[in-house]
Structures are given as structure tokens and as C-alpha cells.
Nucleic acid binder design. Sequence first.
DNA 1: CCTGCTCAATAAGATATGCTAATGGAGGCG
DNA 2: CGCCTCCATTAGCATATCTTATTGAGCAGG
Lengths: 304, 304
Amino acid sequence: MPTLRQFEIFVKLAETGNMGEAAGGLGLTQPALSQQLRALEDRLGLRLFERVPKGMQLTPAGRDLVAGARSVIAAARDFRDAADHVAAKPAGSIRFGVSPTIGPYLLPAVIKILHERYPDLRLFMREGIPTAQHAALAAGELDMVLSPLPIAGRGLQVEPLFREPLRIVAPPDDPLHDKTSLVHEDFRGRTFLTLDHRHHYHRQLMDICDKLGASVLSDYEGTSLDALQQMVGSGVGLAILPELYIRSDAGGLDMVRIAEPDDWTEYRSLAAAWRPSAAYADLYAEVAQIIADEARKRARLQLI
Amino acid sequence: MPTLRQFEIFVKLAETGNMGEAAGGLGLTQPALSQQLRALEDRLGLRLFERVPKGMQLTPAGRDLVAGARSVIAAARDFRDAADHVAAKPAGSIRFGVSPTIGPYLLPAVIKILHERYPDLRLFMREGIPTAQHAALAAGELDMVLSPLPIAGRGLQVEPLFREPLRIVAPPDDPLHDKTSLVHEDFRGRTFLTLDHRHHYHRQLMDICDKLGASVLSDYEGTSLDALQQMVGSGVGLAILPELYIRSDAGGLDMVRIAEPDDWTEYRSLAAAWRPSAAYADLYAEVAQIIADEARKRARLQLI
DNA sequence: CCTGCTCAATAAGATATGCTAATGGAGGCG
DNA sequence: CGCCTCCATTAGCATATCTTATTGAGCAGG
């Protein structure tokens, strides 16, 4: 295969018809160019130029091939320009794994900010089970993950962002709302809805139910907080929803109402994670900061 | 500018995700590939791959750039394929200069033969004044010329092909046709039409007119033999037309008739010329041979 | 006809590049 | 805990590539 330099020489010489001039244009000397041209012609097994008294003249074959040579160096130039552009500021597609318990309600605003700051950056959001996404992150199938703690992966950079209150919601007509003050005993024997058991949310909910003496509705595992809210609203049971979801457009308190014990202090902690070896590790840290800022803007959340 | 090899490495590694495998596929060892990859990343100023435990994983930037790298090596491959094809048998465009006094009546058949023999060869015929074309040939602006002798250019390979009778034609109703036998005196005072004075034809015609005591119509200089024939047919004067033209489809003897002295023996000699330094010099010699053969097939012409 | 000019080819040597072989080091897995 | 996989690093060597200096061919002008 010819060298890129040889392609450049071919094209430049076709333009100038003069070895010395072409050599100068490429920043080398005439003998070097002469040798490279010969090497190219030898490699191709044909004569590209004819040596006429006035200089170099394309052969018929050369006339046909020069267009192809041009497109090679054009492609190389395009590549280099794209690389320069990418190197100047982050660009490309970041594969972002999020838990469905947080992503849809917080990330749209984050994406908007990122898009303004890095127009060439694209975020591919993929929702999934946090533990599975941690593995995918470690394996390089995702670039960054936003999920509740704990995050297990070995060799991952885990950046805790904020902790978010978990709220107990009940149907609007639930007797719980009749009392002005609630205690743990009021929840004894009640049934809570939950998400897919592989979510960390599930384990946390079970712990909470233990404390309250409540039980988990095992027949149903939702796939989204919206689904849980719908179920609660229709009287199937109680649920625990994160603060940011309730404050979001999707959440709200139209279908359900908050009903908690007076000493209620359950939280969940959210964190971002990425591979510290990643090329864009700095950028991911910045994204994490943006997420934390955005979350705190929406609710007075505590840092961890 | 990155090396072509580096582009190949980039693409191959993006496909395999494994240095050893990619190196094997490219016929080199793993360290060489590792070094080249580093050199490429350094040159671009960005990380294309992320080193994860399982192997190499594209960074977001790398994912964006790999398509460009692919198109570079695709262009290079296309070029090499085209060059191989051209090297296998003559191809390209041969710029062929011809005199309008011979080209249109002889070359179509030659082109047909060449096209059968070398399907990838294209002939660009350019008509023009022979002396100008000789200069263009020497300067490398034409690859081959077919014209009447003499051909002046220095350092040109001139290959005489055949000599062709020149015929005197007169209008059908000209008194010349009444006689069974003509002598030079019959043409004294008659007027001959001619082509552009820069054609060698013009000088030869003036010589002939001198011998016959005839004169040249100086008001009109045709640009083609067809035009001359038309003029003669309409009674403007006499003309001299080459044998091959008269025998061609365009020529024929519908509008004019031959009227010559009994001892008439005027000829013109045609030759092909090219630069002996040309890459396709052998091919041009072959073309010259084809032209000579074709001409002799049409009329019993003498070799020179 | 000789001389000078232009332009390409060649020679020789310095340098840079690209490769291999051998080794080191980090992380995963039984 | 040791082995295995995979990438990085190093040293050494072959070759490619460039530079300077020189030669050679063709043309123009005196």
C-alpha cells in the first residue's frame, strides 16, 4: 500500500508539474520527492508521470488515478480535522446508564445544560437495573452511571452526589390522612408496592417495611415510579417515592398524598460512577457536579 | 498527518477490541501495534481507546472517528485497485490530436478496434492545425498526433504510415468532364479552394496550383473537407481532396466528380508522432500500426 | 558551436521510523 | 495465592526517509 506522503506527492506534483516546486510545497527537497515518486511508481507498477523537458507531465494512467489520490488525502484531512475538533472540546457520544428511579425526572435538565456547554456532545441515556449497569460500566459498555448507592464495581470512580428523602405516599382516601400525627404503628400490617427486586430500591423498601412492621406486595413489581404512583392512586397499597420524583412534572401530588410518621428520616443516597481510566474522566466529574447542582436546585437536599 | 498504517490499526482494533488479535490480523506483533496506537493518539492529542480489563474499548471520541478512519483506508484501497487495474492493461485517456483532413474519415474505425482491444482505454480526439498540434505534442498537452508530413517537433518519434493520392474534383457540370483526357493546360486559370492557410494542405495546394498554372481562391479558407466539397459542388471552384476522404461515407462522389490530368501523381504522406519518452510509447506504435492497416484496407495505398 | 540555465536523477551519509523479541505490570479468576 | 490474559515498556536492529552534493540531459541565447 502506498504511503500517505506518496499520495500527497502525487497530487502536488500533478498540480505543479515541477518537482522542485512540489517539494517546496510539501516541505521537503527535490531528491526526496524524486525518490518517493519512483517508489510509488515502482509499487504500482506503472508510470504516473512522463519526464518532459519542461518538467513532469501526467501519463494517461496518471490522469485517471490522480482523482483517487486526491480523495485519499481528502479523507485523511477530514479525519484530522474531525480529530482536531474533537480534541478541542469534548465530543462524541457518551453512553449514560441511569436508574429509572431517578433518570427521567432529573436528567432532562442536565442534558439541556450539557448541550449548551458542549454542543458536539451527545448523551445516550439507557435505563436499567443499577447492578447490571455497574457491571456494564466496568466492562466498558457504558461510560457513566447515575444510580443509588451502594455502587459495587471494582476500580470504579464513585462520586456521591446528594441524599434524597424518601416519602411515603398513600391514596387520597386512605385513613392515614385523617390523623394529624402518625407513628410507626399506624403502618403496621399495611402493604407497600415495590419495583423489580433487582433494584436497590427493593432492598431498601424491604428494610423500611421491617422497621414499620409493614409487608411488601410480592405479586407486583413495577418497572417505573409512575407505575407505582398509579397503583397507589387506585388504592392497591402504599408506596415510597423519592423526593425528586414527587417534585417533578411527572410526579406531583395529584393522585397520592404524603403520609409519614413524625420521626420519618429515610433517605437514599445517589452517586455517579465512571471508570477513572476513561478519557473523559474529567468531563464525567463535571457532569456529576451538574447533576448535583441541578438536584439541589429543585429541593433543599443535603450533600452527603 | 497520521500514517495509513495507523488508520488500519485504528480500524482493526476497533473491530477486535483486542491488541493481540488485531496485530495478528495486520501481520505484526502486539508491541508494534501498541506503539503505533500510542503514536496516533499522541499525534491527534486525544485518546481513541480506553484500556479496560477485557481489552480495548473505544472512547466516545474514538467511536466518532472510526468511521472517518474507515473511509481513509477505503479510499486508499480503491486507489490501489484502480492502479492494479490500470497496470494490468493500458487504460486512461489518450489525448489524440488529428488533422481535420484525415481524422473524421479514418479514425472512427481505429477507435472501434482500439476499444475492442483495450476496453479501458479512452481516446480523446482533438482536431486542430497540425503545426500547433506538433507543438502541443512536444509540450505534453497531447499524447499522440496523426497528421500529414512533415512533422517538425524536436525529439518526437515520427512514424510515417502511408501515402495517399490527392484527387482533383470539379462540379458535375464542369466542362472538364467533357474531355476524355486532361492535361495540365486544362487547369490553367482555374481557381482552387483551400483550407485554413496554417494547414500543411494549404502550402501543398499552392505548390500544385503553381505547377498547373491555377490560382488559389484567397477569400475563402475552409475548416473541413466537407465544406470544400460543398463549395465545389455548388460551382465555386475546384478542390483537391485526399483519396481516403473521397472513399469515406462523408465523402463519396455525389456532389463532385474527379477530373485530373492523365499524368497526375500528387500524394500526401501521413504520419503518426508521439514522444518516445511517453509511458505508452509502445501502445502508440501499435495504434500507428492499426491506423496504417486500416487505411490500406480502404484503398490500395502505398507504404512510404 | 559553445555556454549557461533549468530541471530531474543519482550517490552517500545522517536520521528517523517501524518492527521484533524479551520483559514488566495490572487485573481477573479458579 | 498463583496463574492467566492482556497491554505497556524497553532494547536492539533493519529499513525507510531525508538532506547535501553531484551528475546528466535538454534547451536557449550569444
